[in-house]
Simulated scan of single mutants.
Amino acid sequence: MDNRTEPTLPLELAEQPEVVPGQKIGYARVSSKDQNRERQTAELKKEKCFHIFTDTVSGSSTDSLGLDGALNYTRPGDQLVVVTSMDRLARC
């Protein structure tokens, strides 16, 4: 007869949000260091975005590391939340 007992698994496993599908991923952008993206990030937080990527780049620039990061981070089932006001729509 074996007196060993199997180890019990914890009943409460730590949540791992980085692997949960269907997250909202936010992206905020301003054109210059003089501009403030606080209004945009506040709106993205209200939308309960799990992760928010940001850029400070001119609209004529093709280098958007924050947008590239957001697109690379986003997986099937996630939502990319970009536009927080109509004036930003043409600039993304």
Rank of each mutant, 00 (worst) to 15 (best):
M1W: 05
D2A: 08
R4S: 13
E6T: 15
P7C: 07
L9T: 04
L11S: 15
L11C: 13
E12C: 13
L13A: 09
A14C: 08
A14T: 14
Q16H: 12
P17F: 12
P17V: 11
P17Q: 08
V19W: 13
P21H: 10
G22P: 07
K24W: 06
I25M: 02
I25L: 02
G26Y: 04
G26T: 02
G26V: 07
Y27H: 02
A28M: 03
R29P: 03
V30C: 07
V30H: 10
V30M: 08
S32Q: 10
D34M: 06
R37F: 15
R37W: 15
E38T: 15
R39N: 12
Q40R: 03
T41Y: 00
K46A: 15
K46D: 07
E47R: 14
K48H: 01
K48M: 04
K48I: 01
H51C: 07
H51D: 10
I52Q: 02
I52L: 08
D55Q: 06
D55H: 05
T56Y: 00
V57M: 02
S58E: 05
S58P: 03
G59R: 01
G59N: 07
G59E: 04
S60A: 13
S60P: 03
S61P: 03
S61E: 01
T62S: 14
T62I: 04
S64G: 09
S64T: 11
L65C: 08
G69N: 13
L71D: 06
T74S: 09
R75K: 14
R75P: 03
P76Q: 14
P76F: 12
G77S: 10
Q79I: 08
L80I: 00
L80C: 04
V81E: 00
V81T: 04
V82C: 03
V82S: 00
V83P: 01
V83I: 12
V83C: 05
V83Q: 00
V83H: 00
T84I: 02
S85C: 12
M86D: 15
D87I: 04
D87P: 04
L89P: 05
L89D: 09
R91Q: 09
R91Y: 02
C92P: 00
C92K: 01
C92W: 03
C92R: 02
